[in-house]
Nucleic acid binder design. Structure first.
Lengths: 334, 334
DNA sequence: TTCTCTAATGACAACGTGAGACAATTGTTA
DNA sequence: TAACAATTGTCTCACGTTGTCATTAGAGAA
């Protein structure tokens, strides 16, 4: 493989001058610079990163561990945001797919340690608590937080998500929401419930009895919600006029269940959700109104935090906003 | 950062002996080995990969460029398969998300060049042709192929997919399939059409007029298919008894459109598709019968190829199989 | 011419690891 | 006691790059 010595030999100059050209040292004569650059381009020489790392004692590497990257398409935007910032700061990002209860996380961290990575972002697919293996890398948690609260964290403001969605629902004239919330083990679910209740109170409504919950993860189908809770709720006298699903994936079987019962979404009942999952939310009919999070921005923020010198454990909350579609029309109050 | 010299000092031994322990040289006394290993564990020392790479002149790095990783959950299995093989062979995988018509691919390849990666896998989200920038890395294409056919390639056997799905449909008693195929610019779509026709012929059926097609990508909704083609076809005298969708994402609006028309999937009409997209296919009601590809296995095969010494451009086809759900019941022939 | 100053270039060392050559030390067996 | 094997240590080099410092070339001034 070509190295700077080869370039120097071809350019009939010294190793150091080649190095200067590569590192854009202004102390190089323009003619020399061009001559050497020409040779570099012709040979396709690329500096050896390993040597650079060793000599400079800086890896310029930031790890990004993404849990179940592909289960939600939003995670791609987290990655993109982080990648763009890393690149802007001249760092190289090492991306890893990890799975829970797997060796993949350990192996990823081991690889990052071997490469002397300077920082590491850990992104989970659900807002929840994690326990971190001890490491001396600057660490940023994305969509999760550690028990001690000693690690920098970027989190969706799930309380705000629940609050704003509920407020909008009430503003549109709905009065009997039913919140099919995710499992309370998920921090996000608890916070959304808080926001839901607070938004009700602000409008003088007590929504305490309007939350249902069940253990449910991405791997589980939503039969319990759909067959038990939903079926029961719809027979109630105070039948809900709007369903708030814990996530878009849950809204899908809900749509089908409603259709089976002859209840038309958007006319007989409204449905909303969280995630704004691409492309599901817009492929559903009617389009699913869902709370959207600025994932790209979250990725950027996380990487900026990872690269910052500030190692005090900051917790940043990110606000979401409603992606409006036809499943939540303005209600003509009867 | 700790290095071998530090370990040697702490263990009151020589640099060489530490090196021997780390590189599993059998010429080390077991007691000594354990003593040094203990220090290594306590300090959390990990060999410096940059130094190792430089000294050994081997990066042990394989790049994996995944196009739009998260748009299909299947890509995660490609990554896992490749990762597992890489790890088993003592290589470290560098994963990149790339996007089409972006600098991300160039940047990823540049980073791999700087790290002197030994091989590179390029995975696309659709089976199609790609043009490669020249590179001296061993390259394997996954789900795509180059124009010259000079690069090792792992491809789904889309012809087989189309053929086997159609055969199964016919075996179950359906006789008027309508194939809502993807855009013919996609190699996979053309091959599936071939398989579809061949399967018909094998059963003595001419299915030539039973294919519809339209430019459609993942970013596009399927309104044309649904509102035009489907609506028209269902009014036809020879109304289809089974719909074959180009991909699961298309099947979703198809379900909704059929429901709107009062046609029940699984009873009045069958629906099948390609991708077996998790978790969509099982969340749809009735569950979507779809051709599944062994993505994990494909990832493994691609990585094995990437690590093989054999640099003759092999093209490997991977067979898929039907994931059966309720949307394609056995037909009671009238 | 000779000296001074600056711009440009070069020589050399060092980063951490791994490997070879070989010496030194210990314990074991003849 | 000598010969031997097993174990450990010393020393050296090399990988490709870049920081430190030294050297050279060229221009202008005395």
């Amino acid at each position: 493989m070509t190295n700077q010595r080869d370039i120097a030999r071809l350019a009939k100059t010294s190793l150091k001058t080649v190095s200067r050209v590569i590192n854009r040292d202004p102390l190089v004569n323009e003619a020399t610079r061009q001559r050497i650059q020409k040779i570099i381009d012709e040979t396709g020489y690329v500096p050896n990163e390993a040597a650079r790392m060793m000599r400079s004692q800086r890896s310029n590497i930031v790890g990004f561990l993404s849990e179940d990257v592909a289960t939600t398409s939003s995670s791609i935007d987290l990655v993109r945001g982080a990648q763009d910032v890393a690149h802007a700061f001249g760092r190289q990002m090492m991306l890893f797919n990890i799975q829970r209860g797997d060796t993949s996380e350990t192996e990823a961290l081991a690889q990052l340690a071997r490469f002397r990575a300077e920082a590491c972002i850990l992104a989970t697919s659900f807002h929840r608590e994690v326990t971190l293996p001890r490491t001396d890398m600057m660490t940023v948690l994305l969509n999760c937080y550690d028990a001690g609260g000693t690690v920098a964290t970027v989190l969706p403001d799930d309380r705000q998500l629940g609050h704003d969605l509920t407020t909008e629902i009430l503003r549109r004239g709905y009065r009997r929401p039913l919140f099919l919330n995710l499992a309370p083990e998920l921090a996000g679910a608890r916070l959304r419930a808080e926001g839901f209740l607070a938004a009700g109170q602000a409008m003088g409504l007590d929504l305490a009895g309007r939350i249902r919950t069940a253990s449910a993860g991405p791997d589980r189908d939503y039969t319990y919600f759909v067959d038990q809770i939903l079926a029961e709720a719809l027979q109630d006298a105070a039948r809900p006029d709007v369903l708030i699903c814990g996530q878009d994936l849950m809204a899908l079987p809900v749509y089908f269940a409603l259709a089976r019962m002859g209840i038309e979404v958007g006319r007989d009942i409204a449905v909303t959700s969280f995630d704004n999952l691409y492309p599901l939310a817009q492929l559903m009919q009617p389009g699913l109104t869902s709370m959207d999070l600025p994932y790209y921005q979250m990725g950027r923020v996380a990487m900026q935090q990872a690269l910052s010198e500030n190692d005090s454990p900051i917790r940043q909350l990110v606000q979401g906003q409603l992606a409006e579609r036809a499943s939540l029309p303005e209600r003509v109050t009867a």
